[in-house]
Nucleic acid binder design. Structure first.
Lengths: 189, 189
DNA sequence: GGCGTATGTCAACGCTTGTTGACTTTTGCC
DNA sequence: GGCAAAAGTCAACAAGCGTTGACATACGCC
């Protein structure tokens, strides 16, 4: 029982790293096994196969904070910082990077992104602004945040990848608020 | 000489469609051949292989308009419309969608995106605003535009995919100008 | 200490991939 | 009309893929 837990963990770690770096189709069961220093068949035994393993490591819990519309605050800054924590999740997680990278070529992953948008983003956004336009505004915010992540973590476009955490917040927060509230001015800044 | 040109064209059309829809690794030589109703070996004969064919159809010419900094205008709107034309290129092209989709899992495609940023985006942006911050500002604009394309054409997030052309311009242009000029107000609107 | 089960190893499977080379058919020119 | 070259067809290749099942080993409990 003890030994197996350690190899399970090794497989999960290796899988997270490989999927995050090479996507779904670019990652082979054998390459995960080699990185985890175990036999490929263990992956099938413990996780049922490549799909099962991917399902596990690509789970994403955004954990969006519930915001009180009556109590205005620097929503943009809060949101950007929250997502930065998600992207650069300390060691573990990686879920968002894994999912985003795979979603371009794997329909199942894309569907999962849409589900996350529907079940996690929309409810969190529903509390802010005109209910009629929630979907559009949430879509715009996501396109800004995902686009930045794409350029920074996946495409590694030099100036975007080199930006400091504080710069990112400074530049992205106003844009997020612009999308979130529809007009140019946030309700606090 | 005449017949071969038609099959070359058929291969190119099929390849564009398949690469745009399934990415690089998700597209097989055989699937392209089947769609083009030709034999897989023809693809090797005419284009040297899968890589050569992909190189051809993933060529991108942004054709960014040279803008006169002395003559202010609705740069954001212009830019957004220009990119909309690129994404939804009538039949042909598709280059940007193909490249963006492949770039997530194909390092060569990602490198090509970075090259396009360096050789096409940066020079066009260099004429606007503080030269010190050109790279960062250009990176932010690209992250907004690519992010929107990702959500609309690749992830197909419903509200983003459903937006009308005019709505896109209305919502995206201010954000682009915000990134482009650093402050909240464009120099015209 | 011995035994049953959990854990790990190994070779092989069926399949798909990109690519190749030998072959047949069609084309265009004198 | 005949013939060389172009265009297309076909079967097969080596390699890599995810997955499987038979086997060997190590562990934990009575």
């Amino acid at each position: 029982m003890r030994k197996s837990d350690r190899t399970r963990e090794a497989i999960l770690d290796a899988a997270r790293a490989m999927f995050a770096e090479h996507g779904y189709q670019g990652t082979t069961v054998r390459s995960i096994a080699e990185r985890a220093s175990i036999d490929p068949s263990m992956i099938i035994r413990y996780f049922g196969g490549k799909d099962g393993l991917f399902s596990l490591v690509s789970k994403v819990e955004l954990g969006l904070p519930k915001i009180d519309p009556a109590r205005p605050g620097p929503f943009g800054e809060m949101l950007v910082r929250h997502f930065l924590d998600l992207w650069e999740g300390s060691g573990q997680d990686m879920g968002l990077v894994i999912l985003l990278r795979a979603a371009s070529t794997n329909e199942a992953a894309a569907e999962r992104v849409r589900t996350i948008f529907r079940e996690q983003v929309l409810p969190a956004a529903a509390q802010l602004g005109d209910p009629e336009t929630v979907e559009t505004r949430a879509g715009l915010v996501v396109s800004q945040l995902f686009g930045f992540a794409l350029c920074r973590y996946i495409l590694a476009i030099p100036p975007v990848a080199a930006m400091s955490r504080d710069d990112i917040v400074e530049y992205l927060a106003p844009a997020v608020e612009l999308h979130l509230f529809g007009d140019g001015h946030s309700n606090v800044r």
